[in-house]
Simulated scan of single mutants.
Amino acid sequence: MQIWLNDKAHHVESAVDLSSLVEELTLPSESVAIAIDGQVVPRSQWPQTPLTDGLKLTVFQAIAGG
């Protein structure tokens, strides 16, 4: 399946929901936020949010600094 990840086409191997996508991409789940069509999906809903072909996701990573 192909999704759009931060405006770039990305082929998904085995992920079926947002939680498994975070694992597949080896992202640190505690420091990322994911939006679908501009709407942030709460982390608690990642396992229930299915991936579909052509889905447009934006991944934001927390940056610490001062």
Rank of each mutant, 00 (worst) to 15 (best):
residue 55 L to Y: 12
residue 66 G to C: 12
residue 7 D to L: 08
residue 30 E to S: 12
residue 3 I to F: 01
residue 52 T to A: 12
residue 66 G to K: 07
residue 66 G to W: 06
residue 59 V to L: 07
residue 59 V to A: 03
residue 6 N to G: 05
residue 56 K to S: 15
residue 56 K to Q: 14
residue 16 V to A: 10
residue 23 E to R: 12
residue 14 S to C: 14
residue 50 P to G: 00
residue 31 S to T: 09
residue 8 K to V: 02
residue 24 E to I: 01
residue 10 H to V: 14
residue 48 Q to C: 02
residue 48 Q to H: 10
residue 10 H to P: 15
residue 14 S to P: 01
residue 40 V to Q: 09
residue 26 T to P: 03
residue 21 L to Q: 07
residue 1 M to D: 10
residue 36 I to W: 05
residue 20 S to C: 13
residue 42 P to R: 02
residue 47 P to F: 01
residue 32 V to E: 14
residue 54 G to Q: 02
residue 18 L to Q: 01
residue 44 S to H: 10
residue 31 S to A: 07
residue 57 L to T: 10
residue 14 S to Y: 07
residue 27 L to S: 08
residue 7 D to K: 08
residue 13 E to H: 10
residue 60 F to W: 00
residue 21 L to S: 00
residue 31 S to N: 12
residue 22 V to G: 14
residue 37 D to F: 01
residue 60 F to V: 14
residue 27 L to N: 12
residue 26 T to F: 03
residue 37 D to K: 08
residue 40 V to R: 06
residue 32 V to M: 06
residue 54 G to Y: 00
residue 13 E to T: 13
residue 10 H to Y: 15
residue 16 V to S: 04
residue 62 A to Y: 03
residue 11 H to P: 15
residue 24 E to P: 09
residue 20 S to P: 09
residue 48 Q to P: 04
residue 57 L to W: 07
residue 15 A to F: 00
residue 42 P to E: 11
residue 21 L to R: 02
residue 18 L to G: 12
residue 64 A to F: 07
residue 41 V to R: 02
residue 63 I to H: 02
residue 6 N to R: 08
residue 30 E to I: 01
residue 3 I to H: 01
residue 16 V to E: 04
residue 47 P to T: 02
residue 29 S to M: 09
residue 38 G to T: 03
residue 20 S to Q: 13
residue 42 P to D: 10
residue 1 M to A: 13
residue 15 A to P: 04
residue 65 G to C: 02
residue 15 A to E: 11
residue 30 E to D: 08
residue 66 G to F: 09
residue 28 P to T: 09
residue 2 Q to Y: 07
residue 46 W to E: 09
residue 63 I to Q: 01
residue 40 V to T: 06
residue 13 E to N: 11
residue 15 A to M: 07
residue 42 P to C: 12
residue 22 V to K: 04
residue 57 L to H: 02
residue 35 A to P: 10
residue 43 R to S: 11
residue 34 I to M: 13
residue 5 L to R: 09
residue 2 Q to T: 03
residue 64 A to Q: 11
residue 57 L to D: 02
residue 65 G to E: 06
residue 56 K to F: 13
residue 56 K to M: 14
residue 6 N to W: 02
residue 42 P to N: 02
residue 46 W to R: 11
residue 32 V to T: 03
residue 38 G to P: 00
residue 39 Q to N: 05
residue 14 S to R: 15
residue 34 I to Q: 11
residue 34 I to R: 08
residue 13 E to F: 04
residue 54 G to V: 04
residue 49 T to D: 05
residue 63 I to R: 06
residue 41 V to M: 04
residue 61 Q to I: 11
residue 46 W to G: 13
residue 66 G to H: 08
residue 46 W to D: 15
residue 22 V to P: 10
residue 61 Q to F: 09
residue 29 S to I: 14
residue 45 Q to D: 10
residue 22 V to E: 09
residue 53 D to A: 07
residue 39 Q to L: 04
residue 28 P to L: 08
residue 58 T to W: 03
residue 62 A to T: 05
residue 25 L to I: 04
residue 43 R to W: 00
residue 31 S to P: 02
residue 42 P to I: 07
residue 20 S to W: 05
residue 51 L to A: 15
residue 33 A to I: 07
residue 43 R to I: 08
residue 38 G to E: 03
residue 20 S to D: 15
residue 32 V to D: 11
residue 46 W to S: 10
residue 42 P to A: 11
residue 3 I to M: 07
residue 48 Q to W: 00
residue 41 V to E: 06
residue 53 D to E: 13
residue 20 S to T: 15
residue 4 W to S: 14
residue 6 N to K: 01
residue 24 E to T: 01
residue 60 F to T: 13
residue 33 A to Q: 12
residue 27 L to R: 05
residue 64 A to V: 03
residue 26 T to G: 05
